[in-house]
């Protein structure tokens, strides 16, 4: 009997805590479909009006498109430069390997606000010296986001490279395949889960970044998370809930389609 009660309270604790974690997201999705202009209970009805309304607001539409562009470009560059680095870290033999690996993972440890303010001051200083503007420009924002993506690609791709079998590559080389062909036909396919996970996490980290980007955006061109924060400072209505819900759907969809390829719980 006693064991029975404790097992029930254990389950209540588990599911209560889980509910606490997901409640904000579920509430946002629910409220985004209210047909009333302000949040009131019970809702007068349900509609898609606020999704259309959000799309009509320049800040949200522009923010969504900018975040998407920055995340796609930063993820692409991140993969192109960090996949070879992961390869060298796992397969290469050279001194200072653990130092370099720590260096490449270090952007994860530096708080966003600290890194953001540092890059902002650095960009302005750079502009004073060279007259090339980086702060509040698209290339400047992308460059800062590439740094966000590198550690995730390195971490997830090295993890799957460690499990890959090197002797298959050696066999292909011995049989006369060109090293590029070996890389393209054997190494890359064998780390596909790592590549998918690395690309996915890079995209998400860039798309959802707030703390670093607030220093680097220009007037009239904000990213989506910043547009949400700015709007929330003065308004609270189903429109902003719809915007947040769009981000939840986008990332949720990406997680679900990549779920078969990657082990989510192992990514952290």
């Amino acid at each position: 009997m006693k064991a029975h009660i404790s097992s029930w309270s254990y389950r209540a604790l588990v599911f209560g805590t889980m509910l606490f974690v997901v409640t904000p997201l579920i509430t946002v999705i629910w409220v985004s479909f209210f047909s009333n202009k302000l949040i009131s209970l019970p809702p007068q009805g349900y509609s898609f009006t606020w999704y259309l309304n959000a799309w009509r607001l320049d800040d949200f539409r522009g923010g969504f498109l900018l975040s998407l562009k920055v995340a796609v470009v930063a993820t692409f560059i991140g993969l192109v430069i960090a996949v070879p680095a992961s390869l060298a870290l796992v397969r290469g033999r050279f001194p200072g390997k653990s130092f370099i690996s720590t260096l490449l993972l270090s952007p994860m440890m530096i708080p966003g606000v600290v890194a953001g303010s540092a890059v902002y001051i650095y960009y302005i200083q750079f502009e004073l010296l060279t007259n090339v503007q980086l702060a509040a420009t698209f290339p400047g924002l992308v460059a800062a986001h590439v740094v966000l993506t590198i550690p995730w690609v390195v971490r997830l791709v090295t993890a799957s490279l460690v499990g890959a079998n090197e002797s298959i590559e050696e066999a292909a080389l011995n049989l006369g395949a060109h090293p590029w062909r070996v890389f393209w036909r054997i190494t890359l396919p064998s780390v596909r889960p790592g590549l998918i996970a690395g690309g996915l996490f890079s995209f998400i980290m860039s798309f959802t970044d707030l703390e670093k980007s607030i220093f680097l955006i220009g007037p009239g061109s904000t990213t989506l998370p910043i547009a949400i924060i700015n709007y929330l400072e003065w308004n609270l209505d189903p429109t902003v809930a719809a915007v947040a819900a769009v981000q939840i759907f986008l990332i949720g969809f990406m997680l679900i389609i990549s779920d078969p390829y990657i082990k989510l719980s192992r990514a952290f």
Partner: peptide
């Protein structure tokens, strides 16, 4: 999912 949602959306949730 909440962990990857970024701080803006999660704060939006608590504001709502």
């Amino acid at each position: 999912l909440p962990l990857l949602m970024g701080n803006a959306v999660r704060v939006a949730g608590w504001m709502v």
